[in-house]
Design a protein around this nucleic acid. Sequence first.
DNA 1: GAGCACTGC
Length: 760
Amino acid sequence: MPLRNGTATSGDQEKHRNDTCSDQELQRSRTETNQASTGSVQRCRQWRNPRYPTATSLLRTTEITTNPVSLPGEKRFWSIGDLFLLLRLREDLLKRFKKHDVLIIVGETGSGKTTQIPQFLSDSGFCRDGKTIGVTQPRRVAAVTVAKRVAEECGVDLGQKVGYSIRFEDVTSSSTRIKYMTDGLLLREALLDPYLSRYSVIVVDEAHERTVHTDVLLGLLKKVQNVRSKYVKDHTSIGHKRASNGTILEKENTDPCIGVLKQCQGRKLPPLKLIIMSASLDAHVFSEYFGGAKAVRVLGRQFPVDVFYTVDPQTDYLDSAIVTIFQIHSEEAPGDILAFLTGQEEIESVEKQIHENLQRLPEEKRNMKTVTIFSSLPSEQQMRVFAPAPAGFRKVILATNIAETSVTIPGIKYVIDPGVVKARSYDPVKGMESLIIVPTSKAQAIQRSGRAGREGPGKCFRLYPESEYEKLEDSTKPEIKRCNLSNVILQLKALGVDDIFGFDFIEKPSRAAIKKSLEELILLGALTDELKLSDPVGRRMARLPLDPVYSKALILASQFKCLDEMLIAVAMLSVESIFYEPREKLDEARTAKKCFASSEGDHLTLINVYRTSIELLEKRKSEVGKEKPEKILRKWCKENFINNRSLRHARDIHSQIRRHVEQMGLCISSCGDDTLQFRRCLAAAFFLNAALKQPDGTYRALASGEVVQIHPTSVLFRTKADCIIFNEFVKTTNKTSMSTNSKLLVDSHSQVDIYCFLSR
DNA sequence: GAGCACTGC
């Protein structure tokens, strides 16, 4: 089955890979030295090229079709052969899907499963009676781009038959039948429509990523599916009542099988069909979770990637990465290099090192250009990775995980993978999250190497021996097992799941983590001592799309008459960092920041930034014929070292949250210059984040007892107030130094408040 | 005087 560019289909492709590998199976000793990276010392790096570890060889799913076929996903025009395959696949899939309520589809990148399968379903009558096919994605950008693509393929306007819905953007209409959305958004929808009654099919895409949202959604979908199929079989009404606004309220939990999901009255709902799509490895997990659901495999169009391992373990992966970059540069054919590093600091130091090494090379060998990308980089600078290198130059991209899934950079032929990643971890005893550098999983390593085979055959250099690869976990630990669960639990409670310990998670978080978050929610007043959602506080908190602490701060702020300020503070705290401090212009950036600094703390500093920017926008809007306000703001941001994207995000959140609190009937008033009121309110909401100064000048966090210090970027770094409220812990590589991120000077009154709350 | 991966509502 020939496909484009003469590559074989996956089955053949694998053989092809192995054939190529076997030629190079032996160790490839590199005798050439790399003058550039090593200076006068001669060093060489030895590589071993084993058989390519494909997803297939690791796949443990039993129910895989014997004759997998390929979807023509990347093409606009199909050959007769392609169409034949397409029809065959379509028939096969539909037959299976009609028989089973859950189908698992395993498909590699570029298999077209995301674009094609919803169209098959729509054509086959799954949108009858005005029902919709919902397709969820973990990321906003994916939901938008896929929807655009499918609308184009269907020849319809986006927002008509095919549409998408993400936070702040709803491009759907009453005629939308295929709806792409983020998984978090579908969870929010479920709060208003617990049966997901408008959907006949839900497709959960990229399920292998196992984000918190995906995991909670899978649990919810399983429940909804049970209820809906039960409803069809046993159409008896269980006690329920309707609220005055027409929504259905639960009366009591009469059916333990259904749990507390509310029964539906008077509406005929067809069974909910589910498709779980995963890239690899984990199909068996989903299959087991959904009672042995069948899995089908569709093939992607990845080009072969040769994987090389180091012969010996590397002591310093940064140095190793630099050596490898120069080795590729001097020995390999043209093609861009993508190197995965763990964070901004590493990226900046490696870039500096590369430039220094380049200076030592003869002029004609300096044809290398570095670009960097990480999430906090302003978007204009992020865009630089897409620009092709000057003619005759090789582009080296130094990236964080952002390049693993979120951003696809064209032209990559070589990938360098040190085998580590910075990941969130959670200590349920202290209730503290931190970021630590850990080994990647096998799945992650495969995902990274795949980045070299998007446009043609590539090579991946793993900076560790093959024996180390074998020791890696198959897949990354699901996020739900390494984060604070307060938000998840509040959502589940609002969805009517009372027994959190008994909830059918695909992988259950630890008992300690659940307990810790339940305690936090009780302290915040969201749950009663009987672990019921409190009314109105808990219900209101669940409605707000924010961290529970922020929601509580808003509710309190209406009582403290400073909701205007708190709305801004919460919006600004919810976004990625507002201030941008590039290494080369550190002093300028700090001077700029001083203009906004408030002696009372970082919260008020953030409010100052927000208000100044809004004033600027308003002023420009009233001046006709001048430059566009957005453009002016962008310039202003640049001058003041503020991340425009973060600020815009904060404006979006602000207006969304404002709408919510208005609907709740909360009173939005400003405390004006009386910032004491605002600070007291902060103390009342963030009492779990209070710290007191110790005689030695360090601080002790009251709730955890942890010794902490004020983060040097804080405006309070020098002042050393007696008592502060911080926003979050930042755990750094140095174990003893923990610091606070956002903090607030509070007076003695607020201390009293804090003690009051803590001693409750 | 230190330095925060990536998402999402």
